[in-house]
């Protein structure tokens, strides 16, 4: 039975405009993501700090080249500068990865602990929207943050490098010509995407535990894996489970890049193996697990009460 939607004429609110139905579907999701960023400022502050450190360290590294001004041939200066630029994204990505793990472990636990769960539940945002918005933080938002920050760092370093290169007697144009302006960002985006997809079950598992645990979610998140490994090792003297875990951590590299990129030429798009990645059963098993974990997390959030 559908209750009448007509507001009685004596209501003081009858002039209130109603949001169109199309808006109401995506708006709760958008605002849920925004509120996550309000609450967890470390999501962007920690990567920003790491970015600042990377900027500082890389600039410093470039400055040390000054000591060798005039002694180096142009070729090796270009090579040294490019080598330093290559290591920019890795620490930033690592920072967002760590932030994402800690975030996921607290996302559905913190709101129960501080009882704000009751406030969030009084708003017309479904448990599914909430859990999906929280899952989107480590899987979508943080990789995007890493991408933007890495790219910005790159650009800043390129400009900071101009006077340095001039002092070293190298034309910045020679260096810029060697930077693959399309390849580098594409590579970064590819790397971030495959890792987000590959790690999705990890984040989803942490969200599940954070929705379930009454205390110390970090312990409950790790315990089953440690327990299974230990049981397998003592009972069967094998370590298939451990290998499986290792594959989950490093598999994205193996499947998407055909192994670790060679240091000499890490920028080559030719090294990528997207087809192999898309055909890897590990990817699809992982995504299926992630979907299952998130579905359970939605159910748990529906049933759980503040602690």
């Amino acid at each position: 039975m559908i209750p009448p939607t007509i507001v009685p004429p004596d209501s003081s609110l009858d002039s209130q405009p109603q949001a169109p139905a199309s808006l109401t579907a995506s708006r709760p999701f958008y605002w849920s993501v925004r509120r996550e960023l309000w609450e967890n400022r470390s999501l962007y502050i920690a990567p920003l700090i790491v970015t600042a450190l990377v900027l500082f360290a890389t600039s410093l590294g470039m400055l040390t080249l000054l000591g060798r001004a005039g002694k180096l041939p142009e070729d090796s200066v270009v090579k040294l500068v490019l080598e330093r630029l290559i290591f920019v994204p890795a620490p930033i990505m690592l920072a967002t990865l760590l932030v994402g793990l800690f975030y996921s472990l607290d996302a559905l636990y913190g709101e129960r602990r501080d009882r704000s769960l009751l406030f969030w539940k009084s708003m017309p945002v479904s448990d599914r929207t909430t859990v999906l918005s929280k899952a989107s933080i480590p899987i979508v938002v943080l990789p995007l943050i890493a991408f933007v920050l890495s790219l910005a760092t790159f650009v800043i370093l390129m400009f900071l490098g101009i006077p340095l290169l001039l002092i070293l007697g190298v034309s910045p144009a020679t260096v810029w010509a060697k930077v693959r302006f399309f390849e580098e960002p594409s590579l970064m985006l590819y790397g971030l995407t495959v890792h987000a997809l590959w790690f999705a079950p990890i984040y989803a598992w942490l969200l599940l535990v954070s929705a379930w645990a009454r205390r110390t979610p970090v312990l409950w998140a790790a315990l089953p894996f440690v327990a299974v490994s230990v049981v397998e090792r003592t009972a069967f003297h094998t370590s298939y489970f451990g290998a499986l875990l290792k594959y989950r951590v490093t598999g994205a590299m193996t499947e998407a890049f055909g192994g670790m990129p060679k240091r000499g030429d890490p920028g080559a798009l030719g090294l990528l193996t997207p087809v192999r990645f898309l055909c890897a059963p590990g990817l699809w098993v992982g995504l299926a697990l992630a979907a299952a974990f998130l579905a359970i997390a939605v159910r748990l959030r529906r049933n759980r009460e503040p602690i």
Binding site: L13, Q16, Q18, A19, T24, R27, P28, Y30, W31, S32, R34, R35, M123, P124, V125
Partner: peptide, 11 residues
């Protein structure tokens, strides 16, 4: 902002 964003009946 949040309540105005998610609640269709919020004035």
């Amino acid at each position: 902002d949040y309540v105005a964003g998610v609640h269709p009946r919020f004035d």
